[in-house]
């Protein structure tokens, strides 16, 4: 799982996936795996044998980008104002360490000290527009040496083992998927499939949209990370998924209705191989599956996700077993659909 650690420590806010892409590119090159990068920055690993073997022409996809921030202005005092890139709950922002721009200048997200806030102010949650990034400079001019408006900002949160079987970190959504995809690309004995590491999922599934136009596909399986809410205060029916209960199968989300044939295959493969699995108990949220399923004349799609607590925050938690089983399920699925015609 070395690669996962490298992947989550890379910055890759939507639209600025360079670091993650470079990392994956060099890993692919090490293994002599052919790939191309398209105009938007998606990595496409096209396997010529897919066309030769014929249907179902399968794509596995995971997105490289993560949610983050963007610097919108530098105030006279050198403080940075920002916008959110992708969906972030304002409440997770305050009191964070962040890395700003390509130089990865460290900064912290500050707010007016609680002592100075009036009682009414304390009753309200802090909103993104009340917050700013402090990079520790004397003023605007000095700040400009390190930062420009438009710089991307990513959370700082190194991967750490937690308890006996968990990892804490940022951007598991969807570096976990990227790591699984990369491993499967190196799994020599698998039948041929295409793979895509997409960009800009968090700002509207934009990378996957053009991937779907570029490739002629019959089937796409998205390897994602989804919200686990098995925490105090969440009733059983509000949990979406649970940590440690195995890969999460989506039935439907706001972007797609999963193909029933693919879902049945996933369930059967899991049961035959004693892989624990769970259904995603929620039909909101979107994934690259939405964009891919509607590309060209339509593509059958399904989504398998690693459950993660506190998703879209700097401190999310995943479970190693879930990761392992998700990978295994995807691998067996590839063998199953491509093995028999």
């Amino acid at each position: 799982m070395l690669l996962l650690e490298k992947l989550v420590s890379a910055s890759g806010v939507s639209g600025n996936e360079d670091e993650v892409r470079s990392l994956l590119k060099s890993e692919l090159e090490k293994k002599d795996t052919g790939y191309r990068v398209d105009t938007l920055g998606n990595i496409l690993v096209e396997n010529p044998e897919v066309e030769q073997q014929g249907p179902p022409r399968l794509l596995l996809a995971a997105h490289m980008d993560e949610v983050g921030l963007m610097v919108t202005s530098i105030e006279d005092g050198g403080f940075l104002r920002f916008d959110k890139v992708g969906g972030i709950d304002d409440r997770v922002l305050v009191s964070r360490k962040v890395l700003v721009g390509s130089k990865k200048t460290p900064g912290v997200i500050g707010s007016k000290a609680v002592h100075l806030q009036k009682p009414e102010e304390r009753k309200k949650n802090l909103r993104a527009e009340d917050l700013y990034i402090d990079i520790g400079v004397k003023g605007k001019e000095e700040a400009k040496k390190y930062v420009q408006t438009g710089d991307y900002v990513s959370f700082y949160s190194p991967l750490q083992e937690l308890g006996h079987s968990c990892y804490k970190g940022k951007a598991f959504d969807d570096r976990a998927g990227c790591a699984i995809l990369w491993e499967l690309l190196n799994e020599g004995r698998l039948p041929p499939f295409h793979a895509a590491f997409t960009v800009q999922e968090e700002v509207g599934l934009r990378g996957a949209l053009v991937v779907g136009n570029a490739l002629d596909l019959d089937m796409a399986l998205i390897v994602e990370t989804t919200s686990a809410s098995d925490v105090p205060g969440s009733k059983e029916h509000e949990q979406v998924s649970r940590l440690g209960a195995g890969p999460v199968l989506s039935i439907m989300d706001a972007s797609v209705v999963v193909d029933k044939g693919m879902l049945d295959t996933l369930i059967r493969v899991a049961e035959e191989n004693e892989i624990p699995y769970q259904f995603r108990g929620f039909n909101g949220g979107g994934t690259d599956a939405g964009a891919l399923s509607l590309s060209r004349a339509g593509v059958k799609t399904a989504v398998v996700s690693v459950p993660a607590r506190y998703i879209h925050s700097p401190c999310s938690i995943i479970n190693r077993e879930d990761l392992h089983y998700t990978r295994k399920l995807v691998e067996l699925f590839v063998k199953e659909v491509k093995g028999k015609k």
Partner: peptide, 17 residues
């Protein structure tokens, strides 16, 4: 309406389609 959860008393929780 899609079933998202079945509880121990047999009630179904739902989400809209």
């Amino acid at each position: 309406l899609m079933v998202t959860h079945v509880d121990e008393n047999g009630f179904l929780r739902i989400a809209r389609v």
